[in-house]
Amino acid sequence: MSLESLFSSLSNSISVNSKSGNSAKSDPKSLLSGLLGSGGAQGALGGAASGALVSLLMNGKARNKIQKNAVKVGGMAAIAGVGYYAYQKWQQSRQDSPPPVPSQAINAPVTIAADTPPPLPADLATASFQVKVTGELPMKMVLAMIAAAAADGTIDSVEMTALADAIDTSPLEPAEKGRLTSALNLPPTVEEIAGLANGPEEASEIYGAALTAIEVDTPSEHLFLRRLSRALKLDDQLTATVHETLEKA
């Protein structure tokens, strides 16, 4: 993860806004805050992190892909929507392709599965509106993002300072700030992250959050994602669907 690449990815937007006379968005920090940390986004954060913190943790590519949804539904809902939509799509594919029926069961009475998935959201934007980002889920997602950002072995001093400042200035309870600061200094392991997941849907949302914070361009980052997927007990098809959802966003 590189703050330099993050802020450079904002340059075109800043230039466009400056030309249109929108001076309020001429500062990168203001742009970050306006994108994910104000208005409707503030409610979607669930009290677990500020918009600036989430923005800094996301890689530039993922941020550009889901920024429209973030403006509409809030940063955490936009991020959670990636895993939520992928999970619903995976569930639908399983429903559309039932396992082979044993020959002795061909004439058995037809029953409807109790866990029939809901209709697949029309697209990622719709999924982001539907997903429920409540309770501890925002914190779980941010912890996964911190672990992913540190997957290459370090969070450099520039990144650490910016992230620590975002935590310090965010509207969090002292215990929440302490938890996030501790995570920056000692990122949680994949096993610890997996232990936070409450069911496969939430596991998919946590994995999707981690994916938005990682470039996946080093062996250590590839290894981190493989280990996280296994620890969260996501099957290969679901994992691939999360990647595909973000890539096509």
Score class of each variant (00 low, 15 high):
L6E: 03
L6Y: 03
S9W: 04
I14C: 03
S15G: 08
N17K: 09
S18Q: 09
K19C: 08
K19S: 12
S20I: 10
S20Y: 08
K25Y: 13
S26D: 15
K29L: 15
S30K: 11
L31P: 02
G39D: 07
A48K: 02
A48D: 07
L57D: 02
N59M: 04
N59V: 11
I66E: 00
K68V: 12
N69C: 04
V73F: 12
A80N: 03
G83N: 06
Y84G: 00
Y85K: 02
Y87M: 05
W90S: 13
Q92C: 08
S93A: 12
Q95G: 00
S97Y: 07
P109Y: 00
T116N: 13
P118I: 06
L120T: 13
D123Q: 08
A125I: 06
T126L: 02
T126C: 00
F129A: 10
Q130P: 01
V131G: 01
L137T: 07
P138I: 09
P138W: 01
K140Y: 07
A144M: 02
M145T: 01
A147K: 01
A150H: 08
A150W: 01
A150S: 14
A151K: 03
T161H: 11
A162V: 07
L163F: 06
I167Y: 03
L172V: 07
L172S: 03
K177S: 12
R179Y: 02
T181F: 04
P188H: 07
V190K: 02
A203M: 04
S204P: 04
S204G: 08
E205W: 00
L211P: 01
I214L: 14
I214E: 04
V216I: 15
T218H: 09
S220M: 12
R226V: 14
R227Y: 06
L228S: 05
R230E: 13
K233F: 09
L234H: 05
Q237V: 12
L238H: 05
V242N: 01
H243F: 13
T245A: 08
A249I: 06
A249C: 08
